[in-house]
Write a protein that binds this DNA or RNA. Sequence first.
DNA 1: AAGTGAACCTGAAGGC
DNA 2: TGCCTTCAGGTTCACT
Length: 297
Amino acid sequence: MPELPEVETVRRGLAPVVEGAVVNRLELRRSDLRFPFPADFQKAVEGRRIVSMGRRAKYLLMDVEGNHVVIMHLGMSGSFRTEQATKEGAPGLFHHQRSRLERHDHVVLHLTCDDGSQARVIYNDPRRFGFMLLSTRTELDDHPMFKGLGVEPVGNALNAEKLAEKLTGKKAPLKAALLDQRVIAGLGNIYVCEALWRAGLSPKRQCHTLVKKTGAPTMRLLRLVDDIRDVILEAIEAGGSSLRDHAQTDGTLGYFQHSFAAYDQEGETCCKDSCCGRIKRIVQSGRSTFYCSRCQR
DNA sequence: AAGTGAACCTGAAGGC
DNA sequence: TGCCTTCAGGTTCACT
């Protein structure tokens, strides 16, 4: 479930539970996900207070007292859920309120929250493309995972001039460039398809055609930047997209999937104003692209 | 150098 | 029912 809006939704779900909480125990139920867990993972986290839960692109960043930062990525199928004991319940009751752990629950954070209640934060990931790594606040920007990462698609970081720079001279299809995390960090297959549909741009169009000879962005690139920003903000607002599993840590579903105009809409009529084309599915560098060949040029 | 495709891993869905 | 194939929100690595 992991493009930027889904990761941001997870961050917002986790923050109120984990911020200010002390990690009593970090339970690792296997030795690795995509990568082995850091050797000193438990030592860095156990007994310490969690300062904040942040995000960069599709990465979750958990700041722990003592300068450590846990870098977390959800891969394709990673999700978090939280369980909290009610404050009213006697401490002993908590044990009975907990659900059983399920298949693919790989990591459990046992917490004492800042209001004194007990909680568990459980990471589940069937495909194990996700990972957890350790860094420090001071070294974070130099971490190989973040070095070379592009700008965030929302806020002031993304602007047409900067994007034009990245696309100049590139013959690659637009779809591939927008998926490239070194260009813009946080977009994935869904939101690239949606942004291109909104901007009326073909995913097959070559990147350099959106840049003037002078290196300045074309009108169409300006439009694309706005559409990227809009679609990401709307998706965050909707709590992300829930496809095969839950997007939110309390088990509720995001609902942006009901707003898809292109993604996973193969065969549907294009709902752009006066366009009555059909959404097609093609494959680009091994991944599905959904678009309307009538209005996306 | 840049661009495409396979690989990593499991589960769900569809066809026969 | 079961078996087989295909596909999935990501990233990296090995080939043209």
